[in-house]
Design a protein around this nucleic acid. Structure first.
Length: 400
DNA sequence: AGGTATTCACATGAAACTATTCTCTGAGTTAGG
DNA sequence: TAACTCAGAGAATAGTTTCATGTGAATACCTGT
């Protein structure tokens, strides 16, 4: 008890590096967005007609993760709605991230979410979908207004449930008397629109804007600005920011990653009692960010997924690559031990495909000629994470 | 030797099924007038 | 008679299973030289 008390005492006395850590979290919207002036201007041009109550063109935004799409849209929505409310213009910005599970990842839930935006509750299940649509229409058309609907990670949505909703949404306008709705699609899949229904495609991508990745120098600038707000002066060793941005630039210029990295490095430094954030903290942060990502995705998977993953980890040290069938055999034995019911190979195949998508494994479909066709699978997780991951999975699956 | 046909071991797709959660509806029940 | 209870019908959704079809190239099997 005394020790813990002492710890808190010391903790208080110790000075923090941070002035305002929230600046380094990914949901922070800075009041100035650098290196995106062109795109911002373009978006502004396209959306400006809303202020005159004219319906603007639908807009589509492409760009990889961490290239500032989300932040830019949020920024623009904020400033339009500010001006709109100053001038009493009936304008309603809605931002929805379609990837959020249980929130907006199905047709029903997306519409339900929209209805919520208009201040009405909808049961999470039980109602027929067209009923929900009707409520939405009525709500939307009750008064004259322009709705700007930004759908982030829209590719996730269509991947899961097809493009019917988008078709419905683009068509809504012709059925509304008072309101107009304008869609802004945000996707980090550059070829997303290719496999959309042509009708949807043409009406959704009336305007397209591409967000290119940042280069190392730009990330450096962004980091410096954020760091200035987040950290106290002279708490970061020279070179740390440079290295941090180099890390991130290496992976297609993901600014979000760089910012995350910097924050974690700061946290590590603080905890270790150092008076400055130095390179070693950064290195450690990189490891931690990586392993946290892997472990938290693993932990959040259902039991069956965990079993399959564990089976993979079991084989991995023995061979550099292995096939679906081998994993299935191991998995079947594992299920016997854990008393889980055994899923069909068909299902395992899908699970493996998902792991591949998540980047946990690397799988290529190969043909072994006379000996069939299968996935050639190799683990793409760092070795020292594997050990930790294995422990975590054993605990979760109640293995001894 | 060169060409063709087979064949393996899965991949991939579509549809149907199961279980769970939740609403809505209408029949039956109850308490008070 | 109004309010309440409760079972059953319908929906949405996630996670599977079942059935059906596809597939790339190493081998087996010919064929003609």
């Amino acid at each position: 008890m005394v020790k813990i008390g002492q710890f808190f005492e010391n903790y208080l006395k110790k000075e923090s590096f941070f002035i305002d850590k929230s600046v380094l979290f990914s949901n922070y919207v800075p009041d100035e967005i650098i290196f995106r002036e062109e795109q911002l201007q373009e978006i502004a041009n396209i959306l400006a007609p809303t202020l005159r109550l004219e319906n603007p063109s639908n807009l589509f935004i492409y760009g990889k993760t961490g290239t500032g799409k989300t932040i830019s849209i949020k920024h623009i929505l904020n400033s339009i709605s500010e001006i709109a409310s100053n001038n009493k213009i009936p304008f309603k910005p809605i931002y929805i991230n379609c990837k959020l599970k249980k929130v907006a990842d199905t047709e029903y839930r997306l519409i339900a979410r929209l209805i919520e935006e208009f201040g009405q509750e909808i049961p999470s299940t039980g109602l027929p979908t067209d009923e929900v649509y009707n409520i939405f229409y009525k709500l939307l058309d009750k008064e004259k207004q322009i709705v700007l609907l930004a759908l982030d990670e829209i590719d996730q949505l269509t991947k899961k449930i097809g493009d019917e909703i988008l078709y419905n949404l683009t068509r809504i306008n012709s059925e509304l008397k008072n309101s107009q709705i304008c869609l802004i699609g945000i996707s980090n899949n550059l070829v997303f629109a290719e496999n959309l229904d042509p009708r949807v495609k043409s009406s959704l991508s009336e305007e397209e804007i591409i967000f290119p990745p940042y280069n190392a120098l730009q990330i450096q600038d962004i980091l410096k600005r954020r760091a200035k707000k987040a950290f106290k002066e002279d708490t970061i060793q020279i070179g740390v920011i440079e290295k941090c941005s180099a890390y991130a630039a290496r992976e297609h210029g993901d600014a979000r990653r760089a910012i995350d990295l910097l924050r974690v490095a700061g946290e590590i430094a603080e905890r270790s009692g150092s008076h400055i954030v130095d390179m070693s903290h950064l290195d450690e942060a990189e490891k931690k960010v990586e392993s946290d990502k892997v472990i938290s995705t693993a932990i959040n998977q259902p039991k069956q997924f965990q079993s399959v993953l564990y089976s993979i980890l079991f084989i991995a040290p023995q061979k550099k690559s292995f096939f679906t069938g081998e994993i299935y055999e191991v998995y079947k034995n594992l299920c016997k031990q854990t008393r889980l019911n055994v899923l069909t190979q068909r299902r395992i195949s899908d699970i493996l495909a998902e792991f591949d998508m998540q980047g946990i494994i690397h799988a290529t479909i190969i043909s072994k000629g006379r000996y069939g066709r299968t996935r050639d699978i190799s683990l793409s997780i760092d070795e020292n994470i594997v050990i930790k991951l294995k422990e975590v999975l054993e605990k979760s699956l109640n293995l001894t």
